[in-house]
Amino acid sequence: MSLDNLHVGINHYLVLSGILFSIGVLGVLIRKNAIVILMSIELMLNAVNLDFVAFAKFSQNIDGQVMVFFVMTIAAAEAAVGLAIAIAVYKRFQEVNISRFENLKG
């Protein structure tokens, strides 16, 4: 493997973002704690943000950064609502295990 391959291009950023996304998926799949699942979702959103910023840099087009701005705003709103639901579940069951969420109904 030559040193030229280690020179960072867009592929490196895409692979890093893919690895981060996979770790986020793993967290959503194997964890039972709802808070940690929300954290893993944040991790996945951040992986996508890294993609957007990398494309913005390597194509010299700022639209990717605008998208990151929107993704951040929506992720913050999603975290607030998700944590409010977690608080509601904790009040009812005294734990935030994801299996309790199947009891959510009107």
């Binding site: 705003t73 929506i74 607030a80 608080i87 509601a88 009040k91 009812r92």
Partner: peptide, 23 residues
């Protein structure tokens, strides 16, 4: 997005205030 944030604020306050979760 500003409207979405308003909805999220109202929704999270309403959810967190509800007694005993959703039941």
């Amino acid at each position: 997005v500003s409207i979405l944030l308003l909805v999220a604020i109202v929704g999270s306050v309403a959810l967190a205030r509800s007694k005993g979760g959703t039941h």
